[in-house]
Design a protein around this nucleic acid. Structure first.
Lengths: 201, 201
DNA sequence: CCCTTTGTTGACCATCGGTCGATAACCGCA
DNA sequence: TGCGGTTATCGACCGATGGTCAACAAAGGG
């Protein structure tokens, strides 16, 4: 009846790394509220308390599993200042779409679970707002934008989400085509407001 | 020590009416998951069990408080078949915006709580899909639409939501202007796909 | 070989959505 | 005026959830 150790003791970094890896996997395969912390802990082979020792809350855990990819997205879509404004935008948008193409399920789950977890919504909103800011900077660099222009940008961001979700879920449109549609639509909505997007590029 | 009745007995219809009224109020002031059935019951001055006697679930209760307004929205946006397709769309869109203008908080909460309650998401998705169908019918009546056109419509519906949310939250754009922006953008995205929206109207 | 450090655990809590049998308020009727 | 039946209403309860805590034990150094 020689019993081995009741559990294996891991270094903090290693344990945390494993948990993040597992979470990234689980959360892309199941919905946010389909997963309980108890189930996740069992899946990880540890106690629920340990999970809470590494992450202060379920939401924080979820955000942490997304943060790496979200950061990568934001890093890749930072505009190249050497390009003229319009090309900056086109290039950033292309990177954005490439990222989605490489992270279809993450993107889908991220958008779909946005409502459930307030902090995720906050994160997503932050990305959105920053993106909007980048766009606006390219269009009318100084001062607060006209309300209608702001509304149009906000709308276009909605267009972006809607179109990308449809794209990811159907997979019958290629990236270059979608890129063209998105750019055309952005130009058109800005034109409809009265600004001239070509004035800067 | 003469004690009155421990509780007041109401007719079914009256009780239900009061609960719906209270729910409509509470749900527009607080988020879906910030409200527990216990709190709602306490607010209503009744027991939680009674609340469940009138509504089979929290979600059903929430939907019920929205249903009246949602039905009104759907009724008002049904297209007038006597108008040419493009005017049908313009008129429906205008009704849509008017409804939102008259029900700002309901609209806001409805969109924001869409993620939390699956049935609400379903309801909203139904409206969206039906709207998309209406639009597509006006543009290419026969057969399944080209994938890119479908993506564009889905994107535009996202534009609609995004722009309306911004509109409701800021209140510095008037309805006619927004209406113009939305229509222009729709036409532009459809044009970008390769269809000619003017061909039908 | 023990002893300190700390990664880890089981037991616990409040609250959640939801259920059920029992109770008591009201109405018709005598 | 009082009784009896209908049923609106309640209190107590359930399993699961997110979250907390004091105590245990696995390792590495002396």
């Amino acid at each position: 009846m020689s019993e081995g150790p009741a559990y294996q003791r891991l270094a903090v970094d290693e344990r945390r790394r494993r948990l993040l890896e597992l979470g990234a996997d689980l959360f892309t395969r199941h919905g946010y509220d389909e997963l309980s912390m108890a189930k996740i802990a069992k899946e990880a082979g540890i106690s629920k308390a340990l999970l809470y020792h590494y992450f202060p809350s379920k939401e924080a855990y979820f955000v942490a599993t997304l943060e790496e990819k979200a950061n990568e997205l934001q890093r890749r879509t930072v505009p190249n200042p050497e390009l003229p404004p319009f090309e900056q935008l086109a290039a950033s948008l292309d990177e954005y779409l490439k990222w989605i193409e490489e992270n279809k399920s993450s993107y889908d789950k991220m958008i779909r679970n946005a409502g459930a977890a307030p902090e995720v919504r906050a994160l997503l909103d932050r990305v959105r707002t920053e993106t909007a800011h980048r766009i606006l900077q390219g269009l009318s660099p100084e001062g607060p934008p006209k309300p209608l222009l702001r509304t149009a940008i906000r709308g276009w961001l909605g267009f972006l989400d809607g179109a990308c979700l449809d794209w990811v879920n159907h997979g019958d449109v290629d990236r270059e085509t979608l890129h063209g549609l998105l750019l055309s639509t952005l130009i058109a909505s800005v034109l409809a407001v009265g600004e001239d997007p070509a004035a800067k590029g």
